[in-house]
Design a protein around this nucleic acid. Sequence first.
DNA 1: GTCTATAAAGCGATAGAC
DNA 2: GTCTATCGCTTTATAGAC
Lengths: 196, 196
Amino acid sequence: MPRAVAGRGDILPAIAEVFREHGYEGASLALIGQRTGLGKGSLYHFFPGGKDEMAAAVLAEIDAWFEAHMFGPLRDHAEPDVAIVAMLDATDSYFRSGGRVCLIGVFALGDARDRFGSAVQSYFARWVEALAEALQRGGREPSAARALAEEAVAAIQGGLVLARALQDTEAFTRTLGRIAITLTGRPRSAAGMASA
Amino acid sequence: MPRAVAGRGDILPAIAEVFREHGYEGASLALIGQRTGLGKGSLYHFFPGGKDEMAAAVLAEIDAWFEAHMFGPLRDHAEPDVAIVAMLDATDSYFRSGGRVCLIGVFALGDARDRFGSAVQSYFARWVEALAEALQRGGREPSAARALAEEAVAAIQGGLVLARALQDTEAFTRTLGRIAITLTGRPRSAAGMASA
DNA sequence: GTCTATAAAGCGATAGAC
DNA sequence: GTCTATCGCTTTATAGAC
């Protein structure tokens, strides 16, 4: 019989979802065990450092995902406009059109910011910087690019707060639509919105 | 000797600050007792319903403050442009230029949204509606007013997330500056920024 | 109105059998 | 690798003295 779980990677998404929905303090080991289907023994086998190490691993995985799928393309893609549109589609998809919240934003607002301060800071700083670079390569002035990038990242986070508060995911969809116009000068394509 | 505490009103601000900084789950009665200088006995004397009643009272107080100082003026002020500028100044002041976080935003992102869903929803819905009404009275089309209002409220929340994540309150100040231009067509006045 | 003592439950974490 | 049992601590909440 193959082992039930090959490594941390198999259960990280489930753990991430618990932290995302309940925050660091609210994510009890009982909940995590329930969601992953593992007992505490197994959890501590994979994460000897306990809850702290689980959260750090989740943050690292999310960070790597954004680096690979959003920050990297924004910095490197030959056509910055294409990368920006792709970023908006990826954002819509990742946050399930507002049905999912940003775990790192949740951590930023609570006690977890003190625990994982540099990871939280780095994530947002690199998002803003990568987007600013794309905007600059697309022809914007450096200072305007930076301001637009900061505005867009803040708007995404605020859109998630609003969508969850109003229990209306369309508030997030509308936010993404406004950002698209601000950044690209055009509405989001129906194709991008449908596939997301 | 006068009683140490006349009523709930005296200690609500201290309790609010604990919820704001630690979230609902993180705000333990031990912390609240420490911050208010009261033992559990006194806390349960004022709030027989315990932590849940404390949070509800804090939400109600915050809601009343925003209703009186921001939503009301936005709806009623004879000059909507003046009310909008005043709202931005009040926002800057209330959130300590980004040094303070929005308790209702924190609740919205976490488990507390399920507990206090209607209060959270109502707060944000009325903020957007009141601002939209002011913009409409100022001459905007209804649909444009509503979109701008939603954009501004989301930007404020996102600016708070960003400022706290980056540990840089100026990220919030810059956000408010951009909102001012979007809503009023003019930068925030130096007077308003200084007095905030 | 404020306190201490205490109850009952849940928490993160550990130990050790299998 | 997975489990159960358990430890020690903190949690919310209550009881009752003053």
